[in-house]
Computed example of a mutant assay.
Amino acid sequence: MPTLQASMQFVATLACGIFAGAAIYINAVEHPARMSCGTLVAATEWAPSYKRATWMQAPLAISGFLFALIAWFAGAGLKWLIGGVLLGLVVPFTFIVIMPVNKRLLSPDLDKSSEEARQLLERWNRLHAVRSALSTLALMIFLLNF
């Protein structure tokens, strides 16, 4: 029977892997595809995509962080705490750094075909890449220390 520590490590790694995979997909595939359709279409499509992704990615980041923390408390090494913190950092980073861009992109007074909208979408993608990097680094730490 698996120990609590091993179970928490597995679940943390699974949540982190799904989060990182989704984040990388958004940066590498979804966002470039939406941008290739022009600013108006990209800005229009971004809102429902963002709302759906929030309900998937937020629970993954939070649960991955919590399970890594529990694994660390259960005796896993310090690297599990470090990986968990890296994954958990995507949440405050999103609220503090990305949220102002999100709010402007969701604003009803934004001209979705404007240069401002294009610049916001490009900035959003660069900021989202930080989430991809943090979660990928956390995943590498988890996989190397499983």
Rank of each mutant, 00 (worst) to 15 (best):
N27K: 13
K112V: 09
G88M: 01
S135E: 10
V11R: 06
I24V: 11
G88Q: 03
A23Q: 06
S113W: 06
L120E: 02
L105Y: 08
A74I: 01
L121S: 06
L87W: 06
L110A: 02
P32F: 08
L139W: 06
A68Y: 01
G75S: 00
M99L: 13
L60W: 04
L134A: 05
F67G: 04
L110H: 00
L139E: 03
A15L: 15
Q9D: 07
L120G: 04
A22E: 01
F146S: 15
A74F: 00
L66H: 12
A58L: 10
G64P: 14
M140V: 15
V91E: 11
P100Y: 06
F142W: 01
V97F: 04
V11S: 11
K51S: 13
A6M: 14
E122C: 12
I141S: 02
V91R: 06
N125R: 12
F73G: 12
A58E: 07
L69T: 06
L143V: 05
L121H: 07
A23H: 06
T44N: 11
L144Y: 08
S113I: 08
I70A: 14
E116H: 10
N145H: 08
A133D: 05
L137E: 13
G88S: 03
A71G: 07
S107E: 08
A138D: 01
E122P: 13
R52G: 08
R123V: 13
K103C: 11
W55Y: 04
A53G: 04
L127T: 00
M140A: 14
A20D: 04
V101M: 08
Q119C: 15
I26W: 05
A129R: 03
A74Y: 01
R123C: 15
G17N: 09
I18E: 01
I62N: 04
E45V: 14
L89R: 05
V130I: 07
K112W: 07
G77S: 02
P48A: 05
R52Y: 07
A12K: 11
Q57L: 09
A23F: 05
A61E: 12
T39F: 08
